[in-house]
Simulated assay, not measured.
Amino acid sequence: MSEKPKEIVQSFYHEFEAGNIEASLALLAENVEWVNPLPEEIPFSGSYKGVAGVVAYLQLLADTLDMGPMKLHRVVAEDDVVMVTGHESSKVKASGLSYSMDWVHEFTVENGKIIAVREYNDTAEMLKAF
């Protein structure tokens, strides 16, 4: 029996937070699309396609931010869609300024793999640090 979408998404966060990047990437479909619409001042804004695109996105995050741990508040699933609410506090390397914000991540899971991720962030809070 395959894992349910909620369990797959929870595993993704668990592996990512534990530093097991390869294990978290293994939960992504080859054709995954990760979308993070942000103001142009934030360098990792955009749409990233495929596992290689997600790797490029994660590298941009690492180059730009000293990310604090992500705190998950709620994980709710309906069919193949999983919504996650959480919080992060991160520091922008270039400015030395920090931000703290709540966020929502929307995942779509098909055939045991994450095929889509869309982030909804508090861009006003982020911009203060950029």
Rank of each mutant, 00 (worst) to 15 (best):
S24I: 11
V81Q: 13
A62V: 02
M70D: 09
F16K: 09
S11N: 15
S2D: 05
Q10H: 02
G19K: 05
G68S: 08
D102C: 07
A129S: 14
W34V: 06
E125M: 02
A23L: 08
T85Y: 06
E119L: 06
V117E: 01
F44R: 00
A116M: 08
V92D: 06
M67A: 08
S47I: 10
G96E: 07
D79Y: 06
E110T: 14
K91V: 07
S2A: 10
T64W: 01
Y48M: 07
V9P: 10
A116P: 03
L97Y: 00
D102E: 15
P39A: 03
L28T: 10
Y48A: 06
F107S: 04
Q10G: 05
M126R: 05
A129W: 01
Y99P: 01
L97Q: 13
N121R: 06
M83G: 01
T85P: 07
M67T: 04
Y57W: 14
D122C: 12
S98Y: 03
K128A: 10
L28F: 08
S11Q: 15
I42P: 02
W34F: 11
A77S: 12
I21R: 13
D80H: 14
E119T: 11
M126E: 13
P5K: 02
E78F: 10
G53C: 04
V76A: 13
S98Q: 12
V109P: 02
S90R: 00
E41C: 01
F44H: 07
V84K: 02
A62K: 09
I114F: 03
V9L: 09
P69C: 11
G53T: 02
L61A: 07
G53S: 01
W103T: 10
A26Q: 12
R118F: 03
T85R: 08
V9H: 08
K128M: 05
M67G: 01
I114S: 01
S2P: 12
A29H: 09
L97T: 03
E17G: 12
S24K: 05
L38D: 01
E30D: 15
H87K: 00
R74H: 15
V92Y: 00
L60V: 11
I8L: 04
S47Y: 00
A26G: 14
V54T: 08
R118Y: 00
E22D: 15
L127R: 08
V55Y: 06
F44L: 03
E3Y: 10
G68C: 07
G86N: 11
A23D: 12
E30C: 05
K4M: 14
E40F: 12
A94I: 09
Y99K: 12
E110R: 15
L61P: 00
K113Y: 09
I8S: 00
E22K: 15
L61V: 07
Q10N: 13
A18I: 09
L65P: 01
W34H: 13
A18Y: 09
V109H: 03
V104S: 08
Y48Q: 10
E7G: 04
E7F: 02
G50Q: 05
K71Y: 02
E41W: 00
I114V: 09
N121D: 14
